[in-house]
């Protein structure tokens, strides 16, 4: 177990392509950090830099007290779970789990003990002598995690480990990963493009965009106070409404911002609401419905109880404290206090 520090970390590919730049993250011992962002934002590259599979061209990565920039992946004391699991197809599950320990000359009895322990934690005991191809997606996923656990490393690195599973299994495995991490208290860095996965798993989230950190914080901090329009639009589902303030004139307290943000769940239908919405489409979700429409020519979405009456035109109100203000040029948040 160890803390991990990223100090001004960056990567420039030959030529001038900057994949990652100026990343500063302090990860505490035992913390579960999720790197989240759209595809191509550099999150996987960053994870692979921590793992040692990609070189670091700027800054410094420390695992524990040790600077690992020049250290081989094998010697960084990390374990990684890959998106395609990367199980060795010609080895049995047992050999897969033991391979890392065998290479490190762990005594046989110790290997045996750790493999059995991991198999028990992950409930893969009865598959130990099978080859990976005889396992289902979920079982392979468990073996991949088992291979990380047996090593008892300083940190787990997860590279979109659930993206090859079907939706239902993804939800189950998500919970299992969370519980497992709580139990083992091993520092974990998890990469995903799925904001829901990120929100549910993370102690703290790192939102990346274009190779740079947009915001770091707990899931609720990011949800409540997104630092930029990017984070506002990325975290939370359905996404926050981001509307040019000229589309909703006469809204008090918005004069100094040209973009206003308000979450669909924070908008309510009231007789005298300041926003007028022309309904264009309705999506039923069961417990509630998503109502899409336009206000002043701009798209707007609200969540709405499924039993409440609908009309062509709705008037919307909201609580002032749920209003987010942004500068449209930089995308940065503007504090209301100003």
């Amino acid at each position: 177990m160890a803390s991990i520090t990223l100090d001004n970390v960056g990567k420039v590919y030959s030529g001038d392509t900057r994949a990652v730049g100026d990343v500063n993250i302090e990860i505490a011992d035992g913390e579960f950090i999720v790197l989240v962002g759209p595809s191509g934002c550099g999150k996987s590259t960053l994870l692979r830099m921590i793992a040692g599979l990609e070189s670091i061209t700027d800054g410094e990565i420390r695992i524990g007290e040790r600077i690992v920039n020049q250290i081989e992946p094998a010697d960084r004391d990390i374990a990684m779970v890959f998106q395609n699991y990367a199980l060795y197809p010609h080895m049995s599950v047992r050999q897969n789990l033991a391979y890392g320990l065998k290479n490190r000359r762990t005594p046989k009895a110790e290997i045996e003990r750790r493999v059995n322990e991991a198999a028990e934690i992950l409930q893969i005991g009865q598959y130990l002598d099978r080859k990976p191809r005889a396992l289902s997606g979920g079982q392979r996923q468990r073996v991949a995690m088992g291979r990380a656990i047996v090593r008892e490393p300083a940190a787990f690195l997860f590279d979109e480990p659930l993206s090859n599973l079907d939706a239902k299994l993804r939800v189950t495995m998500r919970l299992e990963i969370k519980q497992l991490q709580k139990r083992l208290r091993t520092t974990s860095i998890y990469v995903t493009h799925d904001q829901l996965e990120a929100m549910t798993l993370a102690d703290r989230l790192v939102v990346l965009n274009g190779g740079r950190v947009e915001q770091i914080g707990t899931p609720l901090e990011l949800y409540r106070r997104p630092a930029s329009t990017f984070v506002a639009g990325f975290i939370g589902s359905p996404a926050m409404n981001l509307i040019p303030s000229r589309a909703v004139p006469n809204l008090p307290g918005t004069a100094h911002a040209d973009t206003i943000g308000i979450r669909p769940e924070d908008l309510s239908v009231t007789e005298d609401g300041p926003i007028e919405m022309n309904v264009s489409a309705v999506e039923e979700l069961g417990a509630q419905r998503l109502v899409h429409g336009r206000t002043g020519g701009e798209a707007i979405t609200i969540t709405y109880p499924s039993d409440a009456p609908l009309a062509e035109t709705l008037r919307l109100g909201f609580d002032r404290k749920n209003l987010h203000l942004f500068d449209s040029k930089s995308g940065a948040r503007i504090d209301k206090a100003r």
Partner: peptide
């Protein structure tokens, strides 16, 4: 990724 996994596996 197989070779990478093996590299991490020492």
């Amino acid at each position: 990724s197989l070779r990478e996994a093996a590299a991490i596996d020492g």
